[in-house]
Write a protein that binds this DNA or RNA. Structure first.
Lengths: 254, 254
DNA sequence: CGTAAACTTGAAAGCAATCAACTCTTGTGG
DNA sequence: CCACAAGAGTTGATTGCTTTCAAGTTTACG
């Protein structure tokens, strides 16, 4: 069934050419005619739009195997850039449609990828209306699912500025909030420079449980029964009270 | 429905049953198995998720002819409610896929609707990282395109609270901001209760030009050449300076 | 008419943006 | 090999937009 996720990936290899892009280089510009879609073969790509004031808003990150440019019909409403060095397969929509017409599997995969992108954007959308810490947590969860590694270690392919542009925050707020999360024991930031985060939702410590609940809470699934938890975790850790939090209110295990 | 039928859209009429929902009633619940999609036949439907603190985030509004539930694969990540009294065609995905397999037009329309939804969500997503006034302007623009009427008059089918939940704002901020926009001459709010807005981007006054540019500016397309415009329109109209503005500048007709 | 729901408005508080240093990392060249 | 510069990240103080809390006002409808 075409709406469901497809386990076997019929590839788009037969059509389109693969091209390499250096980090930070432009793959599509805003306003370009939307006659092609782009399959990420390796590396990471993002779509973004420059806003008036010169700041950019990233609309999505695309890892290898994902398709960029599905949402546009006539002109690309967002541009696409390589976040890391990347290889991208450039596919003419006409060719893709032709292939989809003759090959049911391709049609299925096309709809499936579109649907998945839709779900991801919806998820991001639900995230963006919340406060900074929630956005970061949601972002980390999403990335954890996508670039899963052993040890719950996730190597983020993007820089702070990219994260900020994605979450609609400033780079300072991203930095501050990540530091807060680390101080809570929610994550561990290894190697300041290379942006490797590490969530540790497996060990059974008190801290971990708080994190777990925060992580699940952010998804909107867990009705937060314990009021105090929210008061302390979500608000008490704000940058204004960070230093004094533990002094005034000794932390209790949960 | 006859209006619907006479359009050239290959319809989903043949499959699925139409059911009526009273305003505020639940069509799909969060977590329900995503085995169906829902075509809005009349009225307005929204998808939303309840967040921890009891506030809800609306992920999308769906008008007649649009399809709800495309983004979910296994379980519905968001619920769906009727915002107004509505008629909805309930379609089994299996049936839809079967139909899409045999009828290329249906397959095309399915992908097209998904793609359009994707574009809309991306648009909203780009909006959510911006300030309140921009969000409202973006929202109004979108609604203007979707529920176009003569006279640039748009009858919004949803209430302030719905708009707030959609834009990630509070109802107070929505109210305040709409009032500001009206004071700028950007819109006219007719009938406080029934929520009818009216944008008037056709006449050629100075006010109108400012609005027009704001409206285009929000789309991120127009590099804002005039610095002063931004200073006055985007910032100067904030509620802090509102009094000064309206007191000193008698309203000009548009 | 009167009540409840929807909407508006005001004042104070909170959180993220902004402005401004400062630190750490990485890569390059003397 | 060390010095230095540029890029990336962190931290602090202040400002300002949005939320929150708390009335009011208007509209719909029995």
């Amino acid at each position: 069934m075409s709406i469901q996720a497809q386990s076997h990936n019929p590839s788009f290899e037969d059509i389109g050419v693969v091209r390499s892009y250096a980090r930070k280089s432009e793959i599509v510009s805003e306003g370009d005619p939307a006659s092609r879609v782009y399959e990420v073969v390796s590396g990471t790509v993002c779509t973004s739009r420059m806003l008036n004031k010169g700041c950019r808003q990233i609309a999505g990150f695309y890892l290898s195997g994902e398709l960029v440019g599905l949402e546009s019909t006539s002109k690309h409403a967002v541009g696409a850039q390589a976040i890391t060095d990347a290889k991208v397969r450039i596919i003419e929509k006409r060719a893709l449609n032709a292939l989809a017409s003759s090959d049911k599997k391709v049609a299925d995969r096309l709809l499936s990828l579109t649907t998945r992108d839709l779900g991801r954007k919806e998820e991001l959308l639900l995230l963006l209306s919340r406060r900074a810490q929630d956005r970061l947590i949601g972002f980390i969860i999403d990335m954890a699912r996508r670039v899963a590694q052993k040890n719950d270690q996730i190597a983020l392919p993007m820089f702070r500025q990219d994260i900020a542009d994605y979450l609609g925050l400033t780079i300072e707020t991203v930095s501050r909030t990540l530091t807060e999360l680390e101080r809570c024991g929610a994550i561990k930031i290894t190697r300041g420079r290379s942006i490797v985060l590490r969530s540790q939702p497996v060990n059974g410590t008190a801290q971990t449980h708080r994190l777990l609940r925060a992580f699940e809470g952010i998804k909107g699934r867990l009705p937060r029964t314990e009021q105090e938890f929210e008061a302390r975790f979500t608000r008490g850790q704000s940058h204004m009270t960070l230093g004094r939090n533990s002094a005034r209110e000794p932390r209790q295990d949960i």
